[in-house]
Amino acid sequence: MEVQVDDHREVLVSELLRHATQAVSLEIVPDVAEWAKANHVTVVGNPIATSLPVRGQLPRAVVVRAKLSEGDLSGVLGRLDFSGHWGETREMRKDLVMFLRHLVLHELAHLENNWGQSREDDCDEWAFARLAA
């Protein structure tokens, strides 16, 4: 199974508009690491998504890989299961749009709260709270 993220752009942009306190763009790209390198941004590894604060004249951004494989989904869902979000991950396995909405909101949480990678669980909680709202 492969998820084409751009097929869901409208709903993802809507989530950003609804929950962001400042302008944030959604960048859907073939490869996050290559996009980061081309835009002079440092990311660790090649994540399926990342968030970037304001860069010069460029607004804040949530960057998401355009195609997500089943392995990509399983990696995120496994981490969420490990953190105790079994009910949520069960729903996300059935509803891939919910997975994508959570992914984008998780990245937005980093921006809205100025949280680094050590706050992954907090970002998940923040995203789930907004999904439930």
Rank of each mutant, 00 (worst) to 15 (best):
M1L: 13
E2I: 09
E2H: 03
V3L: 15
V3F: 07
Q4G: 00
Q4R: 11
V5A: 14
D6P: 00
V13A: 10
V13T: 13
V13E: 15
L17E: 15
R18M: 15
R18C: 13
T21W: 09
A23M: 11
V24Q: 02
L26Y: 06
E27P: 00
E27L: 04
I28M: 09
I28D: 09
V29Y: 03
P30T: 09
P30H: 11
D31P: 00
D31M: 04
V32E: 10
E34D: 15
E34K: 09
W35R: 01
W35A: 08
A36E: 05
A36Y: 02
N39Y: 05
V41T: 13
T42F: 14
G45E: 07
G45H: 03
N46T: 05
P47Y: 12
P47T: 10
P47H: 07
I48R: 04
I48N: 02
T50N: 05
T50I: 11
S51G: 10
L52E: 01
P53Q: 04
V54A: 08
R55L: 14
G56A: 07
L58T: 10
L58V: 12
L58K: 12
L58W: 12
L58D: 10
P59Q: 05
P59I: 06
R60I: 04
R60N: 07
V64C: 05
V64Y: 00
V64I: 07
R65D: 04
R65Q: 05
A66Q: 08
K67I: 14
K67S: 09
L68P: 08
L68D: 06
L68K: 00
S69L: 04
E70K: 05
E70I: 03
E70F: 05
E70L: 13
G71W: 12
L73F: 08
L77N: 04
L77K: 01
G78D: 12
G78L: 09
F82I: 00
S83Q: 14
S83D: 14
G84P: 08
G84D: 07
H85Y: 15
W86A: 14
W86K: 11
T89H: 04
T89I: 10
R90Q: 14
E91V: 12
E91T: 07
E91S: 13
M92W: 05
R93T: 10
D95I: 13
L96K: 14
V97D: 12
H102Q: 10
L103I: 04
L105Y: 06
L105A: 04
H106C: 06
L108P: 00
L111F: 03
E112D: 05
E112K: 04
N113Y: 07
G116P: 06
G116R: 09
Q117D: 11
S118P: 00
S118R: 07
S118N: 07
R119F: 14
R119S: 13
R119I: 01
R119W: 11
R119M: 14
D121T: 09
D121M: 13
D122Q: 11
D122H: 03
D124L: 02
E125H: 11
E125G: 02
A127L: 07
A127W: 01
A127H: 02
F128Y: 09
A129W: 04
R130D: 08
R130F: 06
R130C: 09
R130P: 08
A132K: 15
A133L: 14
A133C: 11
A133R: 11
